[in-house]
Design a protein around this nucleic acid. Structure first.
Length: 348
DNA sequence: AATTTTCACAACCGCATTACC
DNA sequence: GGGTAATGCGGTTGTGAAAAT
């Protein structure tokens, strides 16, 4: 148990391996074998931890590695094996001589998942996407029914309102109360209650089955400031986040990945940045280049004038671009609805 | 041409398991 | 049997090149 002891040592190099380092490691292992990995870096004259040396050898320097692109036969075999073994990459790699588990995992996350989806197959279950969606809907309906029964038993009146209080710096802002409309299965009244879309937007099935109407183009003053505060307020307040999703629902919420639209809120004031783990998996292993977040300052209520849109810049990945919320919110929202329509054939 | 976005893949991290004392 | 080191594994992140805008 515990971590590798060498990991605690200071001044060890990290990051990409230089050709010189590769040569040292290759020479050492060729001449002496690796033996105990924790002693390899010292004996080979490397400022690396043993774990890093092992990984470099296994994934890159080993002489029996096959180089180049995967053949169609290899891809087909991986898909077949994955259907049986799941994410047991090392076991899959054992069936493909010269290929590493890391290589196969990367191929799966960057290419094969996408290919399967294009063929209408869910890469996680290997079932047709339509079938999986039916299952999710059924589960959600069951859950919803169960909760309704429970609620009735407890004779607990459903919460008719959501009250949010602005505790932020803008003390002129009054307490805002938003009336929540009753659940509906139609889009009547401008409210979308389609269950799956709740998932797309990081709602769980037990969340209030309500979705606010898409915002109209922001009314902007000549200064460019959003003046239609209330519309934004109601929309923003009713988007819940990953942290609100109960653990048993999180798997379902991963349907986000099919639309590649993590759509999250963050409250800057609490430093409570929410990141959807599914968003990273959906963008394969390619960092968080697709991640978008909404952030805001000013306390409990995220106000348009103090909110900002953040998009991680994948090329430098160390900072977030921040742009005024109102410039992008409406556009993003509309795009999500369009993607949803395409995915589910629902007219929005 | 410059900038941004996407993509592939190398490498790291943390946890689980195994080996050893 | 318990503690610790070593190893293995899978998920995640970082990096740089290519493609798109």
């Amino acid at each position: 148990m515990g971590r590798h002891s060498c990991c605690y040592k200071q001044k060890l190099r990290k990051g990409l391996w230089s050709p010189e380092e590769d040569e040292k490691l290759l020479n050492y292992i060729t001449n002496h074998g690796h033996g105990c990995w924790s002693s390899v870096p010292k004996l080979a004259g490397l400022q690396r931890c043993g774990k890093s040396c092992r990984l470099r050898w296994i994934n890159y320097l080993r002489p029996d590695l096959k180089r180049g692109a995967f053949s169609q036969e290899e891809e087909d075999l991986i898909i077949e094996l994955h259907a049986v073994l799941g994410n047991r990459w090392s076991q899959i790699a054992a069936k493909l001589p010269g290929r590493t588990d890391n290589e196969i995992k990367n191929l799966w996350n960057s290419c094969l998942k996408k290919k399967l989806r294009q063929r209408g197959i869910d890469p996680n279950t290997n079932k047709p996407l339509s079938e999986v969606m039916m299952t999710i809907e059924n589960d959600m309906n069951k859950k919803k029914k169960k909760e309704e029964e429970k609620e009735e038993e407890e004779k607990k009146p459903p919460p008719p309102t959501t009250t949010t209080t602005n505790t932020g710096s803008n003390n002129n802002e009054a307490t805002t109360t938003i009336e929540r409309p009753p659940p509906s299965d139609s889009a009547a009244g401008g409210y979308f209650s389609f269950n799956n879309y709740q998932h797309m937007m990081n709602f769980g099935p037990s969340m209030v089955p309500y979705f606010p109407p898409p915002p109209p183009p922001p009314n902007t003053a000549s200064s460019g400031e959003v003046v239609d505060h209330n519309i934004f307020q109601s929309n923003i307040n009713n988007i819940l986040t990953w942290e609100h999703v109960e653990p048993e629902h999180q798997e379902e919420v991963k349907w986000c990945e099919y639309l590649n639209t993590p759509f999250l809120m963050a409250n800057n004031n609490n430093n409570n940045v929410v990141q959807n783990s599914s968003s990273t998996s959906c963008s394969s292993s390619t960092s968080n280049s697709h991640s978008v977040m909404y952030g805001g300052g000013g306390g409990e209520v995220i106000k348009p004038e103090t909110s900002f849109f953040m998009r991680q810049d994948s090329s430098s990945s160390s900072y977030w671009n921040q742009q005024p919320h109102h410039q992008l919110f409406s556009d993003m929202y509309t795009k999500d609805l369009q993607r949803f329509s395409l995915a589910f054939g629902q007219s929005m």
